[in-house]
Amino acid sequence: MELTKNITLGIYLPGETSIHRLDPRTKIIATTLLIILLLFIRSYEAYGVFFIFTAAIIYFAGIPPRFALCGLKPMLPVLILMWVFQLFLYSTPDAEVLFSWFIFTATDTGLHMGNMITLRVLFLFTVTTMLTLTTSIVSLTDGLESLLNPLRKIGLPSQELVMTMVIALRFVLILAEELDKIVKAQMARGVAFDRGNFIQKTRKIFPVFLPLFINAFKRAEELIVAMEARSYSGGKGRTKMKTLHMGRVDLAAGGIMILYAALMVFILFSVSPRI
């Protein structure tokens, strides 16, 4: 039972394309805008335009399409199941019946609802994957920190929050090693993790969880002492070795995003929604 072998947290594909070179702030804002647009799309025409735009981003970022979509594979069974649920269970009183079988009735509103939601999930996934594929974790946190900075004025400790995220990401791998040791130690003591029914399997998580949490908290106490000894004081007056700069490419990207968003809003208002 190798638990930690397949950890691929936010895979990043290094590259030299214009998408890679964009300021992380530009990319975060653009992704947020795309996600907001997606939440409002309710017609096939709008999805068509969205598809063209997403495909263009994947093309310009030089990401193999296979790579951009591979994360979807484990989700596929659930996605299909959800589509089937919508098809048979969602309907409105004036819906047209497509076919019935046994106690199940498929209606056209159910079909559209299923399609819309499946497409939304597919695109949400692709858009967020594109962000992590083209941006390293370090520049993502830098960008996030810089974007959240204005919120300091209303009392939100942005730098500290980003520090929390960084600690979380760093400690995943450290705790993964720890977890591996605990699991092996318990297996050496004769705990068979892969055997037994649901209740027996559930009971076996206790001898793993307790040492994992206790060790994590021991490490936390050590880290607190270490940080306090070095007088860590959050964001006040802290400077960076690498500062972020917006360039011409960011200006161009911003312009494209505004035009695209305007086009999408126009489509959203002019095409009658399917659901």
Binding site: P157, M163, T164, L169, I205, F217, R219, A220, I224
Partner: peptide, 26 residues
């Protein structure tokens, strides 16, 4: 609002455990 070092570290590590439970499917 001010976050103490303790609060930053504990939330970070608990967040790490949560992520770990997700990526290992544990």
């Amino acid at each position: 609002m001010n976050l103490s070092v303790r609060k930053i570290v504990i939330s970070g590590i608990l967040g790490a455990i949560s992520i770990l439970l997700g990526v290992t499917r544990l």
